[in-house]
Structure formats: C-alpha cells, structure tokens
C-alpha cells in the first residue's frame, strides 16, 4: 500500500511547524506555551491517516492549523500547494479541506437537516439548482434522506454526527479531517460512522485524517502518527505501531485482539505478529 502511495502527489505538506500561544499563568504573567514543536509531515492524496495521542498532545490544534483557523508561529503548512497563511486563498483551502468536530450539537447551524447541508454550499455560492442536486445526493449517500425536512434536534447522536459529515462531504472536499468524531457516540453508531469514513476514502478517494482515541479505529489507517506533548513520536503503519511498545509508553492501549495476542504469546503460544483484527486472531488460533 505504501509503495503505491509514494508515486502520488503530497496533498498536505507540513514543514518545521511550531505553534505556541501566550497564556496567563497563576501569577498573571504572560507565559509562552508551546503546543506543537517541529512538526514535519506530508500526506498523500487518498491516504487514510490516523492521529493519536493523549489529551493535550496537540492533535486538535493541528487540525485547526490545517485549515488556517490557527496560523503557525513558525514553519509552513501547505494544503494542495496553497499556504495557509495566504489570506486570499484560504477559502480555496477550506473548500477542499473539511473538518468534522467532536460535538455534533456545536457545529450544526441550521434548524432543518437539508438547510444544514446547504450551509457550506451557500457560503461558496453554489447555484440553487446545483445545490439541490448535491444536497439530495449527499442525503441519500449518507442515509439521511428521510429526515431532510426535520429538525437536527430530533436526530440521534450518531445521525447528528453523520449530518455534520454529510455537510462537509457536500462541499466535495479532497481532504476530510475528523477531530474525535466518535467520542460522543455509542459503539454501534461509532462502527457505522467509521464504516462510512472508510467508504468515503475508498469510493471517492477522499484523503482522511482521523484524530481518535479508539485504537480499534486506527486499524483501518494506512499510516498512524503518534503525537505526544506537541511532538511527533512515531509515524508508522498500524501493524508496525501495534508491535511496538511505544504505544503504551505514551499512554495508549493496544486494541483488543492485539492485547489478547500479546497475552497469549506471554503464556508461550506463538502467534504471528501480523495479527491485527479480530478475524486475524481467530484465523491464527
């Protein structure tokens, strides 16, 4: 998988990114706090990238830096060869890089489902007829068509988050950044949501950057980036990262099948290191 990606262009390029903010400490003095330090990362078109790390490791800040909400203190961030500091072209970046945030309630603007999906399109001045086509298509694709005239308040948490994703997808972005989108969902809704993301990645070749705490979601990624205290500690494939002890060192846990595998190996079984998913494990056993 990695080799085939190498031949493609880099859709995101981050060079020597530093980001810090000034905060007041307990004595009312201004203190410079470093959030991100020396980040170098490039993402290829169509890639599925996972960002993991503890709370406060700078994952969400990185997401907001990618679409120019936060500007780098030093270093450059280029999305589709456009720098995020280029104010005139920031809309081009935001058109092509959509973000889904953690709390669906706080990112839904409209009181009607279809109007919500249209919100972004209205902002980039899509024609009414074209907008109608796209809204209906996206609603059907996401399985929300029957709710189109309803209020988002009547949807379940999972459906609300799907709506937030749908309204990003409607803008036909090249990249979708998801900032802990499943944190507030129940396990079933979480699985449905992740399946939808994988579908978007495979069918529409949309580059996915998924920020998550759930290691089970990391399995589907092409590459995993481990952040800690604002620094990249490791970039690897899920297989590599799950056979490394670095995860536990930075406060993460392995997904369930890996934990079972490790325990079994401790007890003298010899299970292949390639085991990642539950199916792999069952097959190996």
């Amino acid at each position: 998988m990695d080799n085939s990606l190498n031949s493609q262009e880099n859709i995101i390029e981050i060079n020597n990114l530093n980001f810090s903010i000034n905060i007041f400490d307990d004595d009312e003095n201004i203190k410079n706090e470093i959030i991100l330090k020396d980040i170098n990362l490039s993402v290829k078109k169509g890639e599925f990238l996972c960002l993991i790390g503890r709370n406060g490791s700078g994952k969400s800040t990185l997401a907001k830096i990618l679409n120019g909400i936060n500007l780098p203190t030093s270093g450059t961030v280029k999305v589709m060869s456009i720098s995020t500091t280029d104010e005139k072209k920031i809309i081009d970046i935001r058109k092509n890089l959509g973000i889904v945030f953690q709390n669906p309630d706080n990112q839904i603007v409209s009181s009607i489902v279809e109007e919500e999906i249209a919100f972004g399109l209205e902002n980039i001045q899509v024609e009414t007829s074209e907008m109608r086509k796209r809204v209906d298509y996206v609603l059907k694709y996401m399985g929300l068509y029957k709710y189109k005239k309803q209020s988002p308040n009547k949807l379940s948490g999972g459906q609300k988050q799907k709506l937030a994703l749908a309204s990003v997808v409607a803008m036909l972005p090249q990249i979708i950044v998801l900032d802990e989108p499943t944190a507030m969902l129940d396990p079933k809704a979480r699985k449905e949501f992740i399946d939808l993301i994988i579908k978007l990645n495979r069918e529409k070749n949309i580059t996915i950057i998924l920020i998550t705490h759930f290691m089970e979601e990391v399995i589907f990624a092409d590459r995993v980036v481990l952040l800690d205290k604002g620094e990249i500690k490791k970039i690897a494939t899920p297989k590599e990262i799950f056979t490394d002890s670095i995860l536990e060192k930075y406060g993460m846990t392995f997904p369930f099948p890996i934990r079972v595998k490790n325990k079994l190996n401790q007890f003298g079984y010899n299970i292949n290191n390639n085991v990642i998913t539950t199916d792999d494990l069952i097959y190996a056993l």
């Binding site: 679409n67 919100f119 902002n123 809204v135 803008m171």
Partner: peptide
Amino acid sequence: IAMESRCYIDSDNRTKLN
C-alpha cells in the same frame, strides 16, 4: 470555528437552497 471551517465569511454574498 465550525462555521468558519465551512467557508462562512459574511452573510451578504450567499446563495440559497430554497
């Protein structure tokens, strides 16, 4: 932040779904 991420700048130059 969510609105800005979805290209909202001002409400004058917007098209409408309905």
